[in-house]
């Protein structure tokens, strides 16, 4: 097992700088944030975006639409749900509802991250602007690395990290989109398989409690069932039924634990 600092591309050097206080400017911390994107979690995220580009192209989206979606939505689950809704021919309200349901979890993530970056002098608009970069990977990296960043420099660090991840993956998506049509079928199949494989594993690992894992298993089982039963509303129906059931099991388990 590698120590976390190696896994996340950190080093004692950064730590010593953090200890010595904020002599350096914001540009230096912005660059350090940008460099933090080049790490194992960053690499895994790139593989997920390679898969997403293939998925979006296959769903009939254009290069410009896919790159635009990558920049404005950013969080991968929201984008995969949006492409799923487009593939299913859902209308705008149903698609927006499904994406919103899949993205509610961004609010508590931002709630957890914002106090880590805020100082008495931080302008509010900076926090709103930076919140756009919040998705699983940048959030995990930031929460891990912030201990080594002086508090007043954390907004600059996160701006470097977030913008590098977003812009870098927009370039990745565009590049994959351009070559995807020329790949042999077996390679294309492997490309499309990246998205499910990424979420099958990362979703399980990011679950904070047992209920999240129960929700994942029920969602996997009910997704195809509702796809056949209610094709127009399958994602929202499967998400609500499986999510509420998992929450119910969580409440029953908790009550039994307390009794």
């Amino acid at each position: 097992m590698m120590p976390a600092a190696v896994l996340f591309g950190g080093s004692m050097h950064d730590f010593e700088i953090a200890q010595s206080g904020g002599h350096e400017g914001r540009a230096a911390w912005f660059r350090r944030g940008a460099r933090a994107a080049f790490s194992i979690p960053g690499l895994i995220l790139v593989s997920a975006f390679v898969g997403f580009a293939g998925l979006a192209r296959d769903a009939g989206l254009t290069l410009a639409e896919t790159v635009f979606m990558t920049g404005v939505v950013w969080a991968l689950p929201g984008k995969v749900v949006l492409v799923g809704a487009i593939l299913a021919g859902n209308g705008l309200p149903a698609a927006a509802f499904a994406v919103a349901l899949s993205s509610v979890r961004l609010a508590p993530m931002v709630v957890a991250l914002t106090p880590e970056m805020r100082t008495a002098k931080t302008p509010t608009w900076v926090l709103y602007a930076l919140s756009h970069f919040v998705a699983v990977t940048s959030w995990v990296l930031a929460m891990d690395r912030f201990r080594h960043v002086p508090r007043p420099m954390r907004t600059s660090f996160y701006a470097g990290l977030g913008s590098t991840l977003v812009l870098g993956n927009m370039v990745v998506v565009a590049a994959v989109f351009l070559i995807a049509g020329r790949l042999p079928p077996a390679v294309s199949a492997a490309l499309f398989f990246l998205t499910p494989m990424y979420f099958l594993t990362s979703l399980w690992g990011s679950a904070r409690e047992r209920a999240g894992q129960v929700a994942m298993i029920l969602g996997l089982a009910l997704g195809p069932v509702f796809h056949l039963l209610t094709p127009d509303f399958d994602l929202v129906a499967a998400g609500m039924v499986a999510g509420l059931a998992a929450f119910g099991i969580h409440l029953v388990g908790k009550r039994r634990h307390q009794a």
């Binding site: 689950p77 749900v81 799923g84 077996a186 979420f199 209920a211 969602g219 997704g223 195809p224 499967a238």
Partner: peptide
């Protein structure tokens, strides 16, 4: 909130595997 979001993304993933399109 986390349960519903997780289940929804899981449903999309299962559909991508069971009813795929393209290659």
């Amino acid at each position: 909130v986390r349960c519903i979001a997780t289940a929804l993304v899981a449903a999309v993933i299962a559909n991508l595997v069971i009813f795929p399109s393209g290659a």
